[in-house]
Simulated scan of single mutants.
Amino acid sequence: MTTTTYVILGLLALRRWSTYELAQQMKRSIRYYWPRAESHLYEEPKKLVALGLATATREDVGRRPRTVYEITEAGRGALTAWLATPGSGPLVEFEGLVKVLFAEQGTKDQLLGTIAAIRADAEAAREHHAELGTDLLVTGGPFPERLHVNSLVLKFMWEQAEAVRRWAEWAEGVVSEWPDTAPRTGDQARRVISTVTSSTVDAPPE
């Protein structure tokens, strides 16, 4: 049982789904904080059935058959037990930032291109989150009774994308002032490091 297995189990606790519907629901928001290959998502429901935590029913939709999965009582018990333990913190997987880390081995233009791509991705994510938020406000989403927990997750998604966007905007300004060969040392770099080491945790916004 992996975290992805429990994600699918949690979705099944809401309603019956086909594997295609589960994949579409993952794309709606979950992929922004738990990205997994779509091929894996098609295997997880089968695992739940093998463990007795879900059932599988074949249905005909038009000319095409599909398998619909539904949670069992044992599955609900397993989900409740999993929720009773704290989850781990975020693990960041960020190829663009890895390229920033070794940017002195390339050119200034390459670095600026990498940062610009990071900013564009963050802005696209913000746009998606804003559209999702609008849908939740207007319609309540597919599960309006869950708006209170969805709002907590949406706030995190927005703040994460906004933090990346702000960083990229700042980094573009800093790198733009560098000579063609990036400085290895300098007062500006020391000031940046100083602001990080001397910063304090602000109170969360109300």
Rank of each mutant, 00 (worst) to 15 (best):
M1W: 00
I8D: 00
A13Y: 03
R15K: 08
S29I: 12
I30K: 04
Y33T: 14
R36F: 08
R36C: 10
R36M: 10
K46L: 14
L48W: 00
L48D: 00
V49F: 01
V49N: 02
L51G: 03
T55I: 11
A56H: 05
D60A: 04
R64P: 06
R76S: 02
G77Q: 05
G77R: 02
L79A: 04
W82Q: 15
W82P: 06
L83K: 08
L83P: 10
T85D: 09
P86G: 12
S88M: 13
E95V: 06
L97D: 14
E104H: 04
Q105W: 04
G106H: 08
D109Q: 13
D121H: 05
D121I: 03
A125G: 08
E127T: 05
E131S: 13
G133M: 04
D135Y: 03
T139L: 03
G140R: 09
P142L: 02
R146T: 09
H148K: 08
V153P: 07
K155I: 12
W158C: 07
E162F: 01
R166W: 05
W167L: 10
V175M: 02
E177N: 07
R184E: 07
T185G: 10
Q188K: 12
T195W: 10
T197Q: 10
V201S: 06
D202E: 14
E206F: 00
E206M: 00
